[in-house]
Computed example of a mutant assay.
Amino acid sequence: MRRVSINQNGVHFKIHFKSYVAYHVMNESFINFNDDEEYEGGKFSKFCKFSKSNYLDFIFKETYANEMFPGELKHFGLYCSNHVVHIVSAVEPEIEKR
């Protein structure tokens, strides 16, 4: 695993979701990688898109969002220095390099 370092030479991004169904923030020390999940971007990428995940299954079971957006919900994972942010949305985010 590669450590995330923050300094004045780093690249900054703005990631904006015009709408979302749910998001979840976790302390990165407690994340668990599950072998049954499928995603693009590699296990240790800083930003990935899940095609199959336990969090997405949870959202399908606990909300009626799938009825509003059938087959359209996407799960994105943002892996930061101290936090992991999971976002479920029917739209792709706008990503801007700053």
Rank of each mutant, 00 (worst) to 15 (best):
Y55Q: 09
I87V: 14
Y23S: 09
N9V: 07
D36H: 09
V21C: 08
E67I: 08
H16S: 12
G10K: 12
I95N: 01
I59S: 04
F33Y: 14
D57C: 06
S5V: 15
H12V: 13
F13A: 00
G42H: 08
E37C: 04
L56V: 09
V21P: 05
Y79D: 00
F13P: 01
S19T: 13
V91W: 02
L73R: 04
Y39P: 04
C80N: 03
K43W: 14
E72R: 13
Q8P: 05
F17S: 01
A22I: 08
E28S: 12
K18H: 12
V25G: 00
E38K: 15
S89A: 04
R3C: 04
Y23Q: 09
M68H: 06
K18E: 14
H83P: 03
M26P: 01
K14F: 15
K18N: 14
I31M: 09
Y39A: 10
G71Q: 12
Y20P: 04
D57P: 04
H86E: 08
F50I: 08
G71I: 11
G71V: 11
A22Y: 10
F60I: 09
F33Q: 11
N27S: 04
L73E: 00
Q8G: 02
G41S: 01
Y64Q: 13
F17A: 03
N32M: 14
I31L: 12
V91Q: 10
E62G: 03
A65F: 05
Y79F: 15
F44A: 01
L56R: 08
N66F: 05
F44G: 00
F76S: 00
K74I: 09
F76D: 00
Y55S: 06
I6V: 15
I59D: 04
F76N: 01
F17G: 02
V21L: 08
F69V: 05
Y23P: 01
Y23K: 08
G77C: 10
S81L: 12
K18P: 15
D35G: 14
E62W: 12
V11T: 12
F58W: 14
T63V: 03
I87F: 02
I87T: 01
V84Q: 04
R2F: 14
K14C: 05
K74G: 07
V25Q: 04
I15F: 07
G41A: 04
H24W: 14
F13N: 03
F44I: 03
K52H: 07
K74E: 06
G42Y: 07
Y55T: 09
S29T: 10
A22F: 12
N9M: 11
M26N: 06
S89V: 02
H12D: 02
K18F: 11
S5P: 06
F76H: 03
V11G: 00
P70T: 01
Y23A: 03
H12T: 13
E37V: 07
V91S: 09
N32G: 04
V91K: 11
L73Y: 02
N34F: 10
V84S: 00
E37I: 10
E37Q: 10
E96T: 15
S81M: 11
F33G: 05
